[in-house]
């Protein structure tokens, strides 16, 4: 089996499941299709020889964020909270805007030829965790640490928001 065949198959699967996210009526189905889309993207990372990104993508997105999505949606009473259909004018405006964006994007891609990476500099091991660590903790140390501070601030904010107020009792 040619590797490009796998790529075409995966890409088709990714696009299909991404489409199903917005097409399906049931929000739970949407979330599950989104999880499937993340799996397909992880498979793309494996094809690019970036196993670390694959694992992190699954752990962070499929394993944590999507579980929280599912968690929140399950709490809703879905029968009461179905959003009413938009009027046909809104639908028309939406398709015009989206169609214009599509045309612009296709035009940009057709006009510009994006140069591929230079073959002599190409290193198939770039995506491996050792090399990624060297880059993160060497060349991009300052941005990396700044991001960690940002995460820390977000965490403190979340704890502060979730803190029980005086006298409040949840269970």
């Amino acid at each position: 089996m040619e590797i490009s065949n796998i790529w075409y198959f995966l890409s088709a699967l990714t696009l299909l499941s991404a489409l199903m996210v917005i097409i399906s009526k049931n929000p739970i189905h949407s979330v599950l299709y989104l999880v499937f889309t993340f799996f397909c993207i992880s498979a793309h990372y494996v094809l690019l020889n970036a196993q670390f990104l694959m694992a992190v993508n699954i752990i962070v997105y499929a394993g944590a964020i999507m579980v929280l999505f599912l968690f929140v949606i399950m709490m809703f009473d879905l029968k009461k909270n179905i959003p009413e259909s938009k009027s046909s004018l809104t639908k028309l405006a939406g398709s015009v805007v989206a169609g214009t964006l599509l045309v612009i994007l296709i035009a940009i891609i057709r006009k510009n030829t994006i140069p591929g990476p230079a073959l002599e500099k190409f290193n198939s091991q770039t995506g491996m965790v050792e090399n990624l660590g060297q880059v993160l903790y060497g060349e991009f140390l300052l941005p990396f640490e700044l991001v960690s501070i940002l995460f820390f601030v977000a965490m403190v904010g979340a704890v502060l928001l979730g803190k029980r107020e005086a006298g409040e009792r949840n269970f």
Binding site: V35, I58, A62, G63, L70, M74
Partner: peptide
């Protein structure tokens, strides 16, 4: 070379079946 992350990833997916 990501063995233990694989374990961690699958463990975090384990909750989907139950949910």
């Amino acid at each position: 070379n990501i063995g233990i992350l694989w374990v961690f990833g699958i463990v975090s997916l384990g909750v989907y079946g139950i949910m």
